[in-house]
Write a protein that binds this DNA or RNA. Structure first.
Lengths: 344, 344
DNA sequence: TTTATTTACGGAAACGGTTGCGTGACGAGA
DNA sequence: TCTCGTCACGCAACCGTTTCCGTAAATAAA
């Protein structure tokens, strides 16, 4: 354990604890020679102030929490990297909590954060979150929160998002322009605003091209990979199977690839695929995957920046600003236009 | 801020602070009816004990640190997930620190951890680490450490590793058995034991097949992606280019794919590729990538388990045990055997 | 010379929970 | 009736830092 503390420094220097404390914080109340003596000894003894004593006294922990559904996913991993970069630059520490898409875990985590362990929270909701009382309670404890990507519409807080509606529209339109007549949409937890926005973009794009929305073409996937596989398999095995698939998340696109391989469907000849995704290997897939790529790293940085802006102001000035970072459409082979006569 | 504390509970109940504290910790010294009254009110007032006060007094923070080079990488992401799962199951909190492969950052992080902020550290070295004084200092502060994957041989501490030597051997042998005559090895920071072990496996496999080690076939890559690309490009552009490449990390394999595409080299006909990798999309690549997959999630869980075993014992019983979790060879198309006459 | 002001530092009370020790009440055994 | 032990709880010190005061000495102003 770290045993060198202020008292020991003070004794050694024949100073009081308060003087040493002030000297280390470079207070103007302490003379330059005294400060120098303190600095020197602190360095020599490798003094590290006890963060818990400091936090207890100051009611500030210089720690933030990041609460996300998963980490084994390029989007969230990059977001964490952005957050950590900003946080450490500001001298803050980052606690990480994974909900595993389980609302019960999200509630447990939010409840434990009420203890004041962190100065602020950066969060992306889990898919099964409906009731948001646990988040309101956090808010009532005056713990600043910032949402990113999977934002909570019911809470007044800064939010960092992408243009999900437009991206959903663009993705669908891209499939239609590439020659698709029947476009399916694979979605996740519809309680998430990103899901409904992406879906609305999908629906509106269809309407724009005078196409009806076929409820059978909207597949609601969940956290059970095997179940998702079955649903996608069923979708693509059907007589009137779609000739284009718009996946709202990466893992569903991966499943589509597997199902197509299983069923002997060719991408893009038989089915075209587009997906929200931050896969680094999108361009190396067989065929390369057309993606809607979110600026994950920048979203993380932005979320952290917004949080620190609130933490550093005494009064809350920006309670509900939204930052919109646009996603990019990256066209690749999985949506390549195929001339009328199949060349195979 | 969280304002309900023990004193308020005590006042409300006409009890002393110490009695309330003991009741909440379910001490046998407190009568059942009193405990019940305390529990009820604590629940009603949504009491959350201040973790910093507790940590200060008990010299235990129930917090661990995870220090890794990067997170946007399936291996480390999965490891984090494993660690977080175990940690939260034990009621611990997880701080995350990214070194970005910069030894200066690793030193800064290690130094800040001397403050006693965490009860223990789980670590994977950054590639540029040579001097390990910062780690020794942590150790001298009696902060238990556990290494995983990129372990530090100079420090006596539990280590969770994979069979890097054997895997390097198997990977190389697999290329040779698939028909390769000139096998190159792409490696990273040779100061890392995993790198030298994998390389030794490579060298010994060549020797086993009566092949000389050609120094030009061992390419030392770094953190500069552009520079790596150039080196790989140079390797594969040469007159006597290799017909097989064993990449020690995932990102280098991805670069090989890009270079081959650029140079018009066919995988596996012209060049076969194998790599250490945890890519979920390995089987979907064009062509699918033969990998050595490490059990990342289990390694994270194991590292956390070892750490908690040390944290929960009063006396250190297992100072330097090593856990070896074997990697799996997953054969795919990038190393497919091609019959003598090219069919293209 | 006296008084006001600044400079440089010490004393001590917080912060909130934990824990060693002390103690009154009560029942049991002698 | 007296003693002893157990039960159930209170008192207060303690963890290490911060910060509100207070104050002696030195300097400036009157």
């Amino acid at each position: 354990m770290n045993s060198v503390n202020l008292k020991q420094l003070a004794q050694e220097l024949n100073l009081s604890v308060s003087t040493v404390s002030r000297a280390l914080r470079d207070s103007w109340e302490i003379s330059t020679p005294t400060k120098q003596r303190v600095f020197d000894l602190a360095k020599k003894m490798n003094f590290q102030p006890n963060p818990y004593a400091s936090s207890l006294r100051k009611h500030r922990s210089r720690t933030i929490a990041v609460v996300i559904p998963e980490v084994a996913n390029n989007f969230f991993a990059l977001a964490i990297k952005g957050i950590e970069t900003v946080a450490r630059g500001k001298g803050y520490h980052v606690l990480i909590y994974l909900t595993n898409e389980e609302v019960a875990e999200e509630v447990a985590i939010a409840t434990s954060l009420q203890s004041g362990r962190v100065d602020g929270v950066i969060m992306s909701l889990c898919g099964s979150t409906q009731d948001t009382r646990h988040l309101l309670e956090l808010q009532q404890r005056n713990i600043p929160m910032v949402f990113f990507d999977r934002v909570c519409e019911g809470i007044t807080a800064p939010k960092v998002m992408t243009n999900d509606y437009e991206s959903g529209f663009v993705a669908t339109e891209h499939l239609l322009k590439s020659g698709c007549k029947r476009v399916a949409h694979l979605t996740i937890a519809m309680s998430l605003s990103i899901s409904s926005k992406r879906q609305q973009g999908y629906i509106d794009a269809l309407r724009r091209y005078d196409l009806q929305t076929d409820r059978d073409l909207i597949v609601h996937c969940g956290n059970d990979d095997a179940a998702n596989y079955r649903m996608i398999n069923e979708l693509l095995s059907a007589e009137d199977r779609p000739d284009g698939v718009f996946a709202s998340v990466e893992k569903l696109a991966v499943q589509v690839y597997h199902v197509c391989r299983e069923l002997g469907l060719r991408i893009p000849e038989d089915v075209k695929v587009i997906s929200f995704s931050n896969l680094v290997t999108a361009s190396l897939l067989n065929p390369s995957l057309t993606t809607i790529a979110q600026p994950a790293y920048d979203m993380g940085k932005e979320a952290a920046t917004l949080l620190f802006r609130r933490l550093e102001k005494k009064y809350i000035v920006v309670p509900d600003d939204r930052v919109m970072l646009p996603a990019r459409l990256e066209v690749r082979d999985s949506t390549a236009f195929i001339s009328a006569v199949p060349c195979h």
